[in-house]
Amino acid sequence: MSSMIGGGRLVRLDALTPQRWKNGGGVTSEIACFPPGADWKNFDWRVSRAIIEKDGAFSVFPGMLRWILLLEGNGFTLSFADREKLHVTERFAVESFPGDGITHCTLNGGPSVVLNVIARADMLMRVNVTTSRAPLPSLGHALIAEAGVSVRLDEQTVLHAATGIR
């Protein structure tokens, strides 16, 4: 469910439709995608919430950059063929990695909930977490506009993913 707010849409995160991963290792709920209606093969950028339920491979996104942020759980380690491992264990810390390499995820004792941002490598995409007491988006919601998304993480913390074409 969403409503229009000053040129953007306010979306309830608990109203998103989860989709099971192809490899069965978790579920993803798309928060926003541009252009609207694009599928996983032809989007410019995408923001989603995922539950990683078991160890396994991440999907490969050629020509894309990825950012991931731990929301809940003990975190995980991402292993790559061509670079050092990435340990995702700090809540609300934004980590980034290329989308075109083979990536294997090993959970640290149970499922983890994350936010994912994926964007074309030729786009300028800024992903950061800030302290904000502004009323929008409210807890449990995302504010979606053509240039990006803001997701309320807790009462004081907001993830911003904003674009600008290079």
Rank of each mutant, 00 (worst) to 15 (best):
R49K: 12
D154K: 00
F92H: 12
F80T: 00
V151R: 03
S48Y: 03
S138P: 11
R12S: 14
M123E: 13
F58W: 00
P62M: 00
V27K: 07
E155D: 15
V151C: 04
E84N: 12
L153I: 03
A162W: 10
A93M: 13
E146S: 14
A57W: 05
A38T: 10
G63W: 01
L16Y: 09
L143A: 02
I118W: 03
T28F: 01
G7Q: 05
I102V: 15
I118L: 09
V127Y: 06
H160C: 08
T17E: 15
M1F: 12
M64R: 01
L124A: 15
G164S: 11
Q156A: 10
S48R: 03
V129N: 06
T17P: 12
A93K: 14
R20C: 05
R83V: 01
G63L: 03
T163Y: 12
A145C: 15
P62S: 05
D44R: 08
I118R: 01
V60M: 11
V113G: 09
A50S: 11
S138Y: 06
T103W: 00
A121G: 13
A81S: 15
P137K: 02
A93G: 08
E90D: 13
R152N: 02
N42F: 08
E146I: 11
R91M: 10
G75L: 08
P62G: 01
P62Y: 05
R49G: 12
G25R: 02
M125Q: 04
L71Y: 03
L65V: 12
L71T: 05
K22N: 10
G73Q: 06
G25M: 00
A119T: 04
K85M: 12
I51K: 15
I118F: 01
V60Q: 14
V114F: 07
V158A: 02
P35G: 04
A162Q: 13
H141Y: 06
I51S: 14
H87D: 14
A134G: 13
S138N: 11
L70S: 07
P62C: 02
R46C: 01
R126N: 11
T163G: 13
L10S: 10
F97E: 11
G164L: 08
I144K: 06
N128F: 14
M125F: 04
V60N: 10
F58Y: 04
D55Q: 10
D14V: 13
E155P: 09
W21D: 04
L139W: 10
W40I: 13
V47H: 03
R66I: 02
S48D: 05
T89A: 15
N116G: 05
R91D: 05
V88Y: 04
L136A: 10
L70K: 02
A161L: 07
L78I: 01
I5C: 03
A81N: 13
K54Q: 09
F43P: 03
R91Q: 14
E95R: 14
R120Y: 03
N128H: 14
A134N: 11
C33E: 00
M123H: 10
R12D: 14
G148R: 02
V158M: 01
M1L: 13
R152D: 02
A142V: 07
C33V: 15
L107Q: 00
I144E: 13
F76P: 09
W40E: 14
C33T: 10
F76E: 06
G164C: 14
G73V: 03
P62H: 02
A121H: 08
A119L: 06
W67K: 06
